[in-house]
């Protein structure tokens, strides 16, 4: 292998010959695992090989190949280079098993992949949008998603160079804002969803967290409006 830090550890394809294969694309590293064996494989990595720290879960959109990929970076808490694991699913209706049962820290990161790329995670305890709001139309980081101000794929735009007929984005967009709405949408008859999704996380925290490892009482402290950076620092120290 070209990457020197991976060369020092054993080649995983020898340990798990029928589950994974090495990623042979030019400039890429890591192992590609079948989606059906993902949870089993990661459980074995965590228990047998000592990769107990999930560093990140991200998604990749391959529009030309028609695939969605989920990339996991695993590390050992004893140190070392990250191990890169990938699964690939079809881009139409992508579904991947959630690994929250193996690494609880994947919960928010899988929510982000759902929010921004539309990859569904099966058996995720609470799959809802995390950066955008519930009810937002579309998955913004997909390669075929266009924002309201979209003009062309790359600069310089044909409207600006070589003739230089510059038009501001606000003038081109009919609303003067970076927004777009789906066809047939009627704002007057549309009923907004109640903010239950927004408060669902808080609800879970108030009601359902009995089974923790530490046997203590739990209280919720409302520190109010934390918009001053000094108070935000204090809140982090308290945690």
């Amino acid at each position: 292998m070209s990457n020197p830090s991976i060369a020092l550890e054993t080649d995983l394809t020898h340990i798990f010959p029928d589950m994974i294969k090495s990623d042979e694309r030019q400039g890429y590293e890591g192992y590609i695992v079948e989606p059906a064996q993902l949870v089993y494989f990661l459980t074995r990595l965590r228990d047998e090989l000592g990769y107990d720290y999930l560093s990140s879960v991200t998604g990749v959109d391959y529009l030309p190949e028609g695939k969605m990929e989920v990339v996991y970076h695993l590390r050992k808490s004893t140190g070392g280079a990250p191990l890169v694991i990938k699964t690939q699913v079809a881009r139409e209706n992508p579904v991947v098993d959630s690994i929250v049962s193996v690494y609880p820290g994947a919960e928010f990161q899988e929510r982000e992949a759902w929010d921004l790329l539309g990859i569904r995670f099966d058996k995720h305890p609470d799959l809802r949008r995390i950066l955008m709001w519930e009810g937002f139309d579309g998955h913004p980081l997909r390669k075929d998603w266009r924002e309201g101000y979209f003009e062309e794929d790359s600069k310089p735009f044909k409207s600006r160079w070589p003739d230089g007929h510059f038009k501001r984005s606000e003038q081109i967009n009919p609303f003067g804002k970076n927004v777009d709405y789906p066809a047939g949408f009627d704002p007057e008859t549309w009923i907004p969803e109640p903010e239950t999704a927004l408060y669902a996380g808080l609800d879970k925290m108030v009601r359902g967290v009995e089974e923790t490892a530490i046997d203590t009482e739990q209280i919720i402290i409302n520190l109010g409006l934390n918009i001053h950076p000094h108070t935000v620092y204090f809140e982090w120290r308290l945690r």
């Binding site: 009919p174 609303f175 927004v179 709405y181 789906p182 066809a183 047939g184 704002p187």
Partner: peptide, 27 residues
């Protein structure tokens, strides 16, 4: 402003409706 399929300014509701209707008809 209201968080709908995208952020909506209530002052622009008529304009939004007109735009989405035209889009539907074009489709």
């Amino acid at each position: 402003p209201v968080l709908g399929p995208d952020i909506m300014d209530p002052r622009q509701y008529a304009l939004i409706k007109e735009y989405t209707q035209a889009k539907l008809e074009a489709q």
